[in-house]
Design a protein around this nucleic acid. Structure first.
Length: 346
DNA sequence: AAGGCGGGGAA
DNA sequence: TTCCCAGCCTT
């Protein structure tokens, strides 16, 4: 058997039963692919179920508010995916007459849909011969063919895409694409793959050369910046507080948080007291505050480590935009914030 | 071409 | 801890 046949045969035996494999509806395929970008199946699965239940059609998604979509997306990360999901749903409903694009070229035009996702939808939903190259495919191909070109270099991206295009099965592109990805996820794992039980062991270059553990080659590491966040948790006598939408570009765009003051370092109570709150909506003369966490809560993102303090501030009254503490959980918020809300006894 | 963008799973 | 995950967008 050749490479393709072995992969597809392995897939027919070992594949997981997943809900998006039970449909050819492009809306559901698209939804699953967006959710699964940089996200493991285990983490994305409950979100897929929730979205299918709450938004059974693309018209439901298009008619929803961005806030409600972000709320359902809460905890999944990379929130631009949710914002683009909503934008594209509206675009398809309003500009494309509700007709989902049915080929790679047109799918690629959609916001939030890049080369991988366009290929995945085109092949899985429409059986177009379009090769997918995701993290799994990079790993399988680099090892099987012994390719050490960095997968995140422009040359590597071109090289692996070209190779994948020559390999894809023209008779069953949908099955082939899913087979090689599933193979990478389950058999040709990043760490400690079970090569002794691998159907490709006889012809795998990396196994022969003992380079399984160094392939695929990936350039550089991301530089992590440290930031210091001070969240102001106001409380008035009507059990209200201030909760704001993040408007600026950057992390957590369009999610909600307590008023935030960023500082150069972790603040003591004395240093916090000296702040002049000029950037907040509230002018405070006499602060009655306490610190929720003596030790910084460190929230780690890919590129940022957020050292966080929550300052609890009792005030007489709050501006009219204050919301009831009970309603906090209705708003989409970062995990860092929602965990505080869950643990703090208001 | 390089950097920004989340959060969790796995070893 | 570190690496990785059915990547994409902006600069």
């Amino acid at each position: 058997m050749d490479f393709n046949s072995k992969l597809i045969n392995w897939y027919s035996i070992k594949k997981r039963e997943l809900p998006w494999r039970e449909t050819r509806n492009p809306y559901y395929i698209w939804l699953s692919e967006i959710i699964l970008q940089q996200t493991q199946v285990k983490q994305g699965l409950p979100y897929y179920d929730a979205f299918v239940t709450q938004y059974p059609t693309i018209f439901d998604l298009a008619n929803a508010s961005e806030t409600s979509i972000l709320k359902l997306w809460q905890g999944l990360g990379y929130y631009s995916r949710a914002r683009n999901l909503h934008f594209t749903a509206k675009h398809i409903v309003n500009e494309l007459d509700g007709e989902f694009p049915d080929n790679y070229k047109d799918l690629l035009k959609l916001k939030g849909v890049g080369d991988y996702t366009a290929s995945a939808i085109a092949s899985i939903a429409f059986n177009e011969v379009a090769a997918v190259v995701d993290g799994n495919v990079y790993r399988v191909l680099s090892r099987y063919f012994g390719i050490d070109t960095p997968i995140n270099s422009s040359l590597g991206i071109k090289e692996f895409k070209l190779l994948a295009s020559t390999l894809i099965d023209h008779k069953q592109p949908a099955t082939y694409n899913q087979a090689i990805m599933e193979f990478g996820a389950i058999q040709c794992k990043p760490k400690n793959p079970d090569c002794s039980a691998c159907p490709l062991q006889d012809s795998c270059v990396a196994l022969k050369n003992q380079t399984i553990d160094v392939l695929p080659v990936k350039l550089k590491k991301t530089k992590v910046t440290v930031k210091y966040f001070n969240f102001l948790v106001f409380m008035d006598h009507h059990k209200k507080t201030l909760f704001e939408k993040r408007i600026e570009k950057g992390i957590w765009q369009h999610l909600y948080q307590f008023p935030l003051i960023e500082s150069e370092k972790s603040l003591t109570a004395e240093e916090f007291h000296l702040l002049n709150f000029k950037d907040t909506v509230l002018k405070i003369e006499h602060l009655d505050y306490s610190l929720y966490n003596e030790v910084d809560i460190v929230h780690k993102l890919s590129h940022q480590h957020l050292h966080t303090k929550f300052w609890i501030i009792d005030v007489e009254s709050l501006p009219k935009e204050a919301i009831s503490i009970k309603s906090l959980t209705k708003y989409p918020s970062p995990v860092l914030i929602s965990e505080f809300i869950d643990h703090f006894s208001f």
